[in-house]
């Protein structure tokens, strides 16, 4: 079972979702992104997460796939948050 691909997808999914939020756009990029960009980021993030779910379910079946998806996304979201915190600390 290769966990790397679904995990990378979860991670990039949450990164995209994070940059689709106003506060993070201001804090990290310094200005709000255009609404279209924000929309695309949100869509891409959601798609990446769904793809991760699809891969896990296809490989492991619904029961274990869903459990793994829940684990992957929880950890990935945590890592994205930690990265954002680290970035904010470095800038300051």
């Amino acid at each position: 079972m290769n966990h790397l691909l679904p995990f990378a997808l979860s991670l990039s999914g949450f990164t995209a979702l994070a940059f689709a939020v106003r506060r993070q756009q201001r804090d990290v990029i310094g200005r709000p992104l255009r609404p279209t960009t924000t929309y695309v980021l949100r869509l891409a993030g959601a798609c990446a997460l769904l793809l991760a779910l699809g891969i896990l379910v296809a490989e492991k079946g619904w029961s274990i796939g869903l459990v793994l998806f829940s684990g992957h996304t929880s950890i990935a979201a945590g890592i994205v948050l930690c990265a954002l915190i680290g970035q904010a600390r470095m800038v300051r």
């Binding site: 979702l17 994070a18 939020v21 993070q24 979201a77 994205v80 948050l81 954002l84």
Partner: peptide
């Protein structure tokens, strides 16, 4: 959802 990634250090 708005505060999903918010952390004020």
């Amino acid at each position: 959802f708005v505060d999903f990634f918010t952390f004020r250090w």
